[in-house]
Simulated assay, not measured.
Amino acid sequence: MAVADSGTIELGGKKVHRLGYGAMRITGDGIWGPPKDHDEAIRVLRRAVELGVDFIDTADSYGPYISEDLIKEALHDGTGYGDVVIATKGGLTRSGPDVWPPLGRPEYLRQCILMSLRRLGLEQIPLWQLHRIDRKTPREETFAEVKKFVDEGLALQVGLSEVSVEEIKAAQEAGLPVASVQNRYNLGDRKAEDVLDYCEQQGIAFIPWAPVNAGSLARPGGPLEKVAGNHPGTTTSQLALAWLLRRSPVMVPIPGTSSVSHLEENLGGADVTLTDDEFRTLADAI
C-alpha cells in the first residue's frame, strides 16, 4: 500500500499526506479508560507511521487523556515527532463513557492546550482544534482565547470542529486564522457538503470524521458493492475512502481503529483509483 498516493496538503506547518489516522479508538469502550490491549494500540500507532501516515488526529477528551499519552509513548523520540504532525483538540469535558459536554470558557481552553502540550511532550501544538462551540459561552470569547494560542505560540495553527459555514465566517471575522474544519462527512452522510465547499474555496483543510460510514450505500447489492466488483480484493471501506480523497483536494480523512489489520485495510484506500463513472455513481447514490 502507498499512503503517498493519497496526495498531500500543507497542514500543521508541514506537507502531509491526505490520508491520516484518527486516534480515538485506541482508548477503552465509550472512549473511556485505557485500551483493552495496550501493546496493540502502540503497534497501531507505529505501524501507521511505518506505512506513511504523517498526520495523526487526537483530542484531550479521548480517554480522557489516554490517547495523547499513548501517542507520546509510541512515537515521541525524545525531541519530538519528526515529520509526523500531531493534531489535538480541546473544549469537551468527560464524566463517563460516551459523555461529552462542551465547555468553551477561556480559562478551561487554556488549561486544555497547556495540558496537551505537557502530555504530548511538545513546546507547540502543530494544529489545535476547538472540539465544539459551547452554546453557554459567548463564541466571541472562545474565538478570542483560541486566537491567543496562535499569537502566543502555543499552537502553530488552529481549527474548528462540527461547525456551520456561518460559524466559520464568524470565527474568521473575529480574526481567528482557521486552518482546518473537522465535521462528520462520509459517503452516506453529506450534510456538511456546504461546509466542505466553503473550506475548499477558502483553502481550509477539511477533516471528515466517521469517514468510512457509508450507511445504506454499503448494503448487499448496493452501489459500493457494485463498484467493488470492478476492483477485485478491494473492500467497501477502501472505496469509501478513495471517493473522499477524490471528492476534494482539501479532504483529509482520518479513519481510526484499534487493530493493525484494520489499519492496513483502511490505508489501502489510497491505492484505489476510481474511474469518472465510478466516482459519479457513488456521488449520485445518496
Results as ranks from 00 to 15, higher is better:
90 G>L: 13
169 K>S: 11
108 Y>D: 08
118 R>C: 01
49 V>R: 03
257 T>Y: 09
178 V>W: 06
212 V>K: 00
24 M>T: 08
42 I>K: 00
44 V>T: 05
100 W>Q: 03
105 R>W: 04
53 V>C: 01
189 D>Q: 09
221 G>M: 11
35 P>M: 00
19 L>G: 08
1 M>A: 08
135 R>V: 14
223 P>Q: 03
109 L>T: 09
242 A>L: 06
135 R>Q: 15
269 G>K: 11
70 L>N: 03
253 P>K: 13
139 R>E: 13
239 L>K: 02
253 P>G: 05
221 G>K: 07
59 A>F: 01
159 G>W: 08
149 F>I: 06
144 A>L: 09
38 H>V: 07
121 G>Q: 05
120 L>W: 07
58 T>I: 04
218 A>P: 04
152 E>I: 00
94 R>P: 05
176 L>D: 11
70 L>D: 07
167 E>Q: 15
242 A>T: 04
167 E>Y: 07
50 E>T: 14
36 K>V: 09
33 G>D: 09
236 T>Q: 14
22 G>A: 08
10 E>V: 12
64 P>T: 01
235 T>Q: 06
239 L>T: 04
22 G>V: 10
240 A>L: 06
199 C>G: 01
254 I>R: 03
83 D>Y: 02
77 D>K: 05
174 A>N: 14
98 D>L: 13
127 L>H: 00
68 E>Y: 09
223 P>H: 04
149 F>Y: 11
248 S>W: 13
226 K>F: 02
226 K>V: 13
280 R>H: 13
175 G>P: 13
79 T>Q: 13
253 P>N: 11
65 Y>G: 01
137 T>D: 08
233 G>V: 02
121 G>P: 05
86 I>P: 05
254 I>E: 10
241 L>S: 09
140 E>N: 01
227 V>Y: 11
210 A>S: 15
38 H>I: 08
38 H>K: 15
158 V>H: 11
195 V>K: 09
141 E>K: 11
188 G>Q: 08
194 D>A: 14
281 T>Y: 03
262 H>S: 06
67 S>L: 12
58 T>K: 02
207 I>L: 14
233 G>A: 08
180 S>N: 03
69 D>H: 14
270 A>G: 02
